[in-house]
Design a protein around this nucleic acid. Structure first.
Lengths: 143, 143
DNA sequence: ATAGTTGCAAAAGTTTTGCATTGTA
DNA sequence: TACAATGCAAAACTTTTGCAACTAT
């Protein structure tokens, strides 16, 4: 009888791709594992590309972008735009906001549960708010 | 006696540049008038560049970017990043938030006075929040 | 076979930089 | 004359597109 046991992380990534109706190709599996293992992270496409290279995975930056966008559409990750020409992909897809340290560019999650927003405007009929992004921009105290 | 009367908009733009310690060069004056006359607007660098061309002002896109950033540093305008690779410059510098229509890319101001945000996290000592951006993303109702 | 997918080279945008030119004292 | 500031061509980045190669019937 043949052993069919797959290691855990592999199986988990496979499962998530399947659930999202994305074929488990070599590149996608590699990127899925890179992103979806090891907790909440904020990474740029460029960083994902470098990390892939470090792990010995050959994949072009274009494919990284395309894959990240597919993952986003599938709800596996979120894109957060913080600055002109700098977007982060966030592996935390729970409802939350962001704290951005302008010096250094670090991005930190702020759970939405603890934040309360009131007084938002009404929208035209047929239109709905699909998402609310709150970004707190932090910098060194000027005083 | 020589007439020294300048037309109003010209004088206003001049005044604002002076107050911001920016030399009133031909290009800057032109962009200042384009941006600071005629109410609150959300424009991309590209749009400013086109409008300048239409008004017969010769200025490169690089200069438009550089000037917009100078204006931002001087507090004359604000930059709002809404989507990867798409930043808007906002001539409304009062405290406010944004409603973004994902189909079409229109951006609308939401006065901050009517919005109340509570439960924001504490920051490390020496760090302060320099700005809070709230972006409501609106799209056609899915139902 | 063949219809749909995938991954990437090349193209398209966007923003920044370096420096010749211009303006100021 | 020197010194700083300006405007832009060219360079550097970031992101998207078009299509050849691959996959799964």
């Amino acid at each position: 009888m043949r052993r069919v046991t797959l290691n855990r992380p592999f199986a988990a990534a496979l499962e998530r791709l399947r659930a999202a109706d994305l074929r488990p190709t070599r590149q996608r599996m590699a990127l899925a594992r890179l992103l979806l293992e090891g907790g909440d992270r904020h990474v740029t496409a460029e960083q994902v590309h470098s990390q892939a290279a470090e792990s010995g995975i050959r994949v072009s930056l274009a494919t990284v972008y395309n894959t990240l966008h597919q993952f986003q559409r599938a709800g596996l990750i979120r894109e957060v735009v913080v600055e002109a020409g700098r977007s982060y992909f966030d592996t935390n897809v729970s409802d939350h906001h962001h704290l951005y340290f302008e010096d250094g560019g670090r991005l930190v999650d702020v759970p939405a549960a603890q934040v309360e927003i009131r007084g938002l405007p009404d929208l035209p009929p047929g239109v709905e708010v699909s998402r609310i992004d709150v970004i707190l921009r932090a910098s060194a105290k000027s005083k």
